[in-house]
């Protein structure tokens, strides 16, 4: 069962294009949507939320059709976004009074507990909250209407390390119920990746891969060695290479093949998600 099903989504903008993206987000797991800035992550998320209408393709959330059944969908999803969109000169309490009646499953007690836990005073105006606090508020709202699917767009960019770790616990708490699903997008690889089950990598408006994180990390490798090992054929085997006067460092997609190719002549290391983003984004050859 998939929580999100995107099929052949295309959206053409003057500057860039989201090109024919199909993506399944598995129910019961945490999926991280990663990639450099401005490659279409936010556009994809906005299409999931029905904020941006695709030029072609279809969006299904929790089995419901977007935008036809958008009310059913939004009853069941929580949204946490980097840019806060609440009314600035309204207090937290009033904001809650605006939001709560819209949800069938609003849990007032839960909400108050989260406010206390996040040390948010109900009297404070939204405009006075720091970025991190706004995200906490959005999270409290999302968690208080029993959302089955939590969609987070760049949630950690405004958060200090202390709350980032706390966030991991909150999300893992939500994931104790195996019907729940979380998807988040990020351009910086953070602690959030630790708990991600699946990684979907978007680059230049296209989906590069969407796989279990462990498989991705097993498959990719960083290869380091003497520059003399490289020729034009070998360079093609790399997703990206960084060459300096002292040698090269590159990302390969197939660790086994590379190990056979280079044998003992090169050093192999585990690639991090950051490595994967970096080399793929740079592509071809990277000079230091």
């Amino acid at each position: 069962m998939n929580a999100i099903e995107l099929r052949n989504l295309t959206k053409i903008y003057p500057q860039f294009t989201v090109n024919n993206v199909s993506l399944d987000v598995k129910r019961g797991y945490i999926t991280g949507l990663i990639g450099p800035n401005g490659v279409g992550k936010s556009t994809l998320i906005k299409m999931m939320l029905g904020m941006v209408r695709p030029d072609s393709g279809s969006v299904k959330i929790l089995g419901y059709d977007m935008p036809k059944q958008e009310i059913d969908i939004k009853q069941r999803i929580g949204i946490v976004s980097d840019d806060c969109f609440y009314y600035e000169d309204v207090s937290i309490r009033d904001m809650k009074r605006i939001i709560a009646p819209f949800y069938k499953k609003w849990n007032e007690q839960k909400f108050n507990r989260y406010l206390e836990r996040f040390e948010l005073s109900p009297k404070k105006k939204i405009g006075q909250l720091s970025k991190g606090m706004k995200i906490k508020f959005a999270l409290a709202v999302a968690l208080s209407h029993e959302a089955e699917l939590l969609i987070m767009d760049e949630p950690t960019s405004g958060l200090d390390p202390v709350f980032r770790r706390e966030l991991l616990d909150l999300l893992a708490e939500m994931m104790q119920d195996e019907r729940n699903t979380i998807i988040f997008s990020t351009h910086i690889t953070t602690d959030l990746d630790r708990i991600a089950d699946y990684i979907s990598f978007v680059n230049r408006g296209e989906l590069v891969f969407s796989e279990p994180k462990d498989e991705v990390l097993d498959r990719y490798a960083i290869v380091k060695g003497d520059r003399q090992l490289l020729d034009s054929d070998i360079r093609k085997k790399f997703a990206g290479v960084r060459e300096t006067a002292f040698g090269f460092e590159g990302l390969v997609e197939d660790r086994h093949a590379a190990e056979q190719l280079f044998g003992n002549y090169a050093v192999f290391e585990k690639a991090s998600l950051e490595d994967i983003i970096y080399y793929n984004a740079k592509g071809g050859r990277v000079h230091a």
Binding site: L49, P67, I71, Q75, D83, F85, Y86, Y87, E88, F102
Partner: peptide, 18 residues
Amino acid sequence: LNDTKNHNHHFLVTLPVS
């Protein structure tokens, strides 16, 4: 204006309303 001031349409469309 109140609705546009802080991209509030973004907020409104996240609510369960069409």
